[in-house]
Design a protein around this nucleic acid. Sequence first.
DNA 1: AATGCACACAACCGCAGAGAT
DNA 2: GATCTCTGCGGTTGTGTGCAT
Length: 325
Amino acid sequence: MGRPPCCEKTGVKKGPWTPEEDIILVSYIQEHGPGNWRNVPTNTGLLRCSKSCRLRWTNYLRPGIKRGNFTEHEEKMIIHLQALLGNRWAAIASYLPERTDNDIKNYWNTHLKKKLNKKLEGHDENNHQEGKSSSSSSSQSKIIKGQWERRLQTDIHTAKQALCEALSLDTPNNNPTPDLTEEQQPVQTSTSYASSAENIAKLLQNWMTNSPKSSSPCQSSNSKVTQMSLNNNLSIGAVSSSSPREGTVNVKTGKGFQVESKPNLPDYKAENGNFQEENKQNLETQVPLTLLEKWLLDDANAQTQEDQLMGIGMGMAMGETADLF
DNA sequence: AATGCACACAACCGCAGAGAT
DNA sequence: GATCTCTGCGGTTGTGTGCAT
């Protein structure tokens, strides 16, 4: 049974999103809430694949996303979590609620991987210089591999401790990014979506009134700059809420948000039923965090869980990441 | 000034999981 | 249980930008 494509391949626009498309998408989601992505292109008139709409929303338009440079602390967390979890970017992202998995993945691929490789190469060179016994790269790799297996047993505890420290230092709501200016800092409010919704409303108003001439598709650099500012505007004041709202939403699937959707577009106040993706994220960030913390702290289960860990993150020697710092 | 290259990031693609029917 | 549909995830690609030559 062949799986049907998520959308018709013909007549589907690809490439960078224009601000106009963003506005359309955001306003639609304001009205109907995120979900039912299959209907989004038809209902909005966007010539985009449903998946593209979802991706655009979850990665860039969704409230609560922090963009810009990763802090040193975030970097540490990513490295440790990657060592623990492997390339499970969504899981890693759940510990950094303001970052998307795509962002983390990109950052890993472009920055951290190189950084680690450099570190590892430095290790290799040191090994060459220190011990001339390793005459070939293959024998060295065997040694490294053997070392890794042994070191895993000891370093896993170090990694646990490091991650534990990282987690204790970096609770999302009380750790403003030190590298960012005040303007760049996401505004932390208790009214999670309300403020961001207002910003979206402002954005919509400004865009409608100020840029009627820009309705032509703007590509290249202008488009990018506009998109960035748009994203920033949308993100302001949309940091994770203080506590997950209780409700009837299926947390796992995120479904059920339509129930309380408001038909009136101009009302951008947060509705309980809308933006449950946000709620879902909050919930998901809490649950695995608890589990991990439990895992970190539960030495009694250490051996069993280390066995489980052997199955993940095999590509990364834990000790190597610990050595980074 | 023109060209080429490397890098960073946004977006796409295909697969898998899970719920609904 | 089989099939359909939707969503999420991870890998990969495409494109814009900045820098070096």
